[in-house]
Simulated assay, not measured.
Amino acid sequence: MSKSVEAPMAQGQVTRQRLLDAAAALIGEVGWNAVTTRMAAERAGVRSGVVHYHFASVDDLLVAASLGVAGALLRSVSDELAGHDDPGEAVDWLLAELGRYGPADPASLLMVEMYLAATRMPELREQLGDMVLEFRRVVAGWLRERGFPGDADAAAVLLAAVIDGLMLHRGLDPRLDLTAVGAPLRALFGKDDTEEA
């Protein structure tokens, strides 16, 4: 490919990414349904028509932007969990990490908006559902590799739901101390004491 063709392609990718970043930020700031093409273009520093060059609609832009953020977050948590050999230590890390996100954190707000939008948008629901299923599959595999004595698939579902639930509760109660749920969560992923009885 010639350099004359590569330069416009690279510039197009940069512009597309700027639009995705702008849309992701706006979802958290004003809500999914309030984001417009004009707002995204202004935030990205491009003309409004450029949005429709890269995305068929504002919903397509919002879906792509939110899935990008969700995918990155889920991969980050999966990768970090893989680095912990002890599930209890992983729980402590996870709670500390979740504690860094306040109720007004843009990524947290984006995820809440995205889950709500997914109830009304089958395409988004399917793609987000696939990401969550993959996250649960990775977590279940991680638990099995560490000798988890129970149903690893069910435990992975619970962990994903706990993450979502804790972040929703933080939005309602900013004073919520996530470390307070450490003991029961560690017990969930620790050794099953009933097996020794």
Results as ranks from 00 to 15, higher is better:
P103W: 03
L109Q: 02
L176Y: 07
A107F: 03
G171Y: 06
D130P: 00
P149T: 07
R175N: 11
E134T: 13
L110C: 03
V181Q: 04
Q127D: 09
F148N: 01
A156S: 13
M114Y: 00
P106M: 08
L178K: 11
A140K: 03
R186E: 10
G147H: 04
G182Q: 14
L116G: 10
G182E: 13
F135H: 14
G147Q: 05
T119L: 14
D164S: 13
P122V: 06
G171S: 07
D164K: 06
A161N: 14
L176G: 02
A180R: 14
E113C: 07
P122A: 10
D173W: 09
D130Q: 13
G129Q: 07
G182M: 08
G147L: 08
L143Q: 05
L133S: 14
L110M: 13
R170E: 06
G129P: 02
M131K: 08
A160S: 15
V162G: 01
D105G: 07
R125F: 05
R186M: 03
D173T: 10
V132E: 07
D177T: 08
D164E: 12
L158V: 01
A160E: 01
L168C: 09
A155G: 06
L159Y: 02
A154V: 09
G182T: 05
T119G: 10
G182L: 11
V138E: 06
A117C: 08
V181Y: 13
L172A: 15
M111L: 15
R186G: 05
R146F: 10
R146A: 09
A140E: 07
E113F: 07
M114S: 08
L176N: 02
A161W: 09
E113I: 12
V138K: 03
E113V: 12
A180K: 12
